[in-house]
Design a protein around this nucleic acid. Structure first.
Lengths: 243, 243
DNA sequence: CGTATTATTGACCACTCTCAAAAAACGTGG
DNA sequence: CCACGTTTTTTGAGAGTGGTCAATAATACG
């Protein structure tokens, strides 16, 4: 199956006619803060797509035709070595963008971890819009700077943290992004142990052992393989920071 | 000694009066492709500074007041854990920028590895100019995307490459940046073994041992601690890519 | 030239990986 | 709904890459 990237677009807006009615992202939305007129222009160029878990959205090296934003679901980005070793560079969730690239080719592969809804912005049309809507360009720059900051944190993790610190960082970070607002302590993990390992620069065995160890220490509960309940976040954060 | 970041600015232009006459960066320059009028406006807000090797330009967490571009010298960016473990996230050379940050604080510490000449753009004034010179904002976005791409490559290196592959990647990458154009095979290393180790997620002993091993295999020569001569770049690149 | 710093080399060890097997979870069809 | 096969996760034993500690060598600097 070819990647989604080159597939035909779906409808450009909901039947309701309300632009972005399908997307209640609030201030995380791509279009947040734009005038209704600018939103209309943005909606005019975007296409929406729903993809099932496991779909490859595009591959590293493919011509970078589109910028994507996630309205529901979860996506992982990764790079491969020739012998199959894999590094996942980011787990993305609603409100996140991906697909920005210089010189033509995507720098990584993007794959849906769960059933996912996407907004697709054709790069060619978006570039024209960016000239007309400076606010949009500012937003894109801000998002990219944020991504870069996250990448630098991840470099610190990959280069200098122990397995325990890596897993603790991962759980604390995921809680912060997915649960902090909602106030719950149970994290749903849309990714497999293999994904977590390839994100943290570990093996699945080490990830599993470390989680079991955290459970035995009373820091977390593991109701099933795809749920983690944070029992002692303070200690977890202390471990994450090397304390 | 306080970081340079808050120090008073030097002269805004050379005595010659020619804007950016001190900076023959060609197409790598921040101002490349701008109209003379735009260059003038840019020069009007920048300050230049020369710093000696070892100078801390700013620290992680300091209020992010400035954006810097390097016109000569070399700079390293790094993040620290509370117990002193360090990850160098980038080595920067003439033409590179640093200091971009969201929400107020710098995300990393910046330190000159060699005597270095900098252009300093006060963030407040630069933000105003960005609104007026869209080309400049595009350039900044492009540079940030490039940084992000480099960061993703480095994540793959840190998470999934062996010590040999890491050191080979480092040498091949540095050659590409510093020597490819000039056509020389000798790389000057402005950074210490400790810096290289903290960039690659290794110890100085492993870096040293790996370099010695490359020397014994005839891949490089090591005339002195701060010079590497690439003798077999093809093999080095093959090792770097895990082949 | 002497001292301090940095780099190299060596011996040993531990954290994490590899290989292997058991257990659990999942999906499918009867 | 349950039996079956497949996949994923967990657990165990052993090994290896790279780290730690220590000593020596080389270099930089006053």
């Amino acid at each position: 199956m070819p990647p989604l990237d080159t597939a035909a677009e779906r409808d450009k807006s909901d039947a309701s006619g309300a632009p972005c009615a399908h997307c209640d992202m609030g201030e995380q939305a791509f279009c947040h803060g734009l005038s209704p007129e600018d939103v209309r222009r943005l909606v005019a160029i975007l296409g929406t797509a729903g993809v099932v878990a496991g779909t490859t959205i595009f591959r590293e090296g493919d011509p970078a035709l589109n910028l994507y934003s996630i309205s529901a679901g979860a996506v992982k980005l990764y790079k491969l070595l020739s012998d199959g070793r894999r590094q996942i560079t980011a787990f993305l969730f609603p409100g996140d963008y991906f697909g920005l690239s210089l010189q033509g080719g995507y720098a990584y592969t993007a794959e849906a971890m769960a059933d996912t809804s996407l907004c697709r912005f054709p790069r060619r049309k978006l570039d024209l819009l960016l000239d007309e809507i400076p606010k949009l360009e500012k937003r894109l720059l801000g998002a990219t700077i944020h991504e870069l900051t996250c990448a630098q944190d991840q470099m610190l993790l990959l280069g200098r943290k122990t397995a325990r610190e890596k897993v603790a960082s991962f759980l604390a970070g995921l809680w912060q992004r997915l649960c902090a607002k909602a106030g719950t302590s149970q994290i749903f993990l849309p990714m497999s142990r293999s994904d977590i390992a390839d994100y943290l620069g570990l093996t699945i065995e080490t990830v599993s052992r470390t989680l079991t160890s955290f459970k035995k220490e009373g820091l977390v509960s593991l109701p099933d393989a795809s749920h983690v309940v944070i029992r002692d976040r303070e200690t977890l954060v202390r471990i994450a920071e090397g304390g």
